[in-house]
Amino acid sequence: MDKTELRRKDFVTSLLLIAFGFFLIVYTVSEIPMKDSWGGVMNVWYVSPGLFPICIGLLIMLMGSILCLRAIKDGGAKKVLDTLFSREKRISEKTFRFMGILLIIFTYVYLYIPRVDYFLSTMLILMVFISFYYLDRQDLLKKFFMFYLTGCLVFLILFVSGIDHYLNQQFLYLTDVLVFVFFLIYLAYSRILIRRDEALRKKWRISLLMSVLPSLVLIASFKYFLLVPLPVEGGFIEIMNIFRYALR
């Protein structure tokens, strides 16, 4: 990153740091007892649980101020003002790739893991992640991104509105079935998009293999070898259990 750009970011960060340091001090003074009684013990300032956070807040404010001065001296503040009024706002290829990774991580951790069978959510995420970047074509990445985002929004509505609970009451593991259907549609959609390119078809097959096999191995190892109860054990893990106990 070039220096002026770095100082521009430093200027913004320094303001955030000063604000954060200030918040730490205000919060500590107002919420943590410095002299009052707590749990039957009369406090004095030097043993108060607020002493250390106040020190950290002060130091963060000090460092933020030093960083701010440096950023102003190196032209960071001026660059902030320049970019504030500039109209040029284009998403670069790298930014788009970054957004793709964030979408995958966020949906995996906050959307699927707490609600969907862990094997299924892992398999879906691996397939999406590998196909996004292994096929390595910007046009395909955009199409996959939009398709996956739309699917996730549908599930978000389903989960936030509580419809998934109702569906699961009507038919056991119906949410898992719906996510599995989404996985199959994603497979079909991606396969159709690359149908004319032999090299991409080979990569797609590898993506599918690398989404199914590691999910199976990892989940089987954690569940049956390390005896870790998984976040959500839905329909697929139930099938794995049947096989596991049939083999024993």
């Binding site: 995420i125 691996l126 590998i130 690398m210």
Partner: peptide, 30 residues
């Protein structure tokens, strides 16, 4: 790397979760 990095992500997630078997750990990790 686009083939093994997604597996590393899954390892990070399951690794962070399995220590306390708390999904909240993942909410903090991200």
């Amino acid at each position: 790397p686009p083939v093994f990095m997604p597996i590393v992500l899954v390892l990070c997630v399951i690794g962070s979760y399995s220590l306390g078997t708390k999904v909240f750990n993942l909410y903090l990790m991200v």
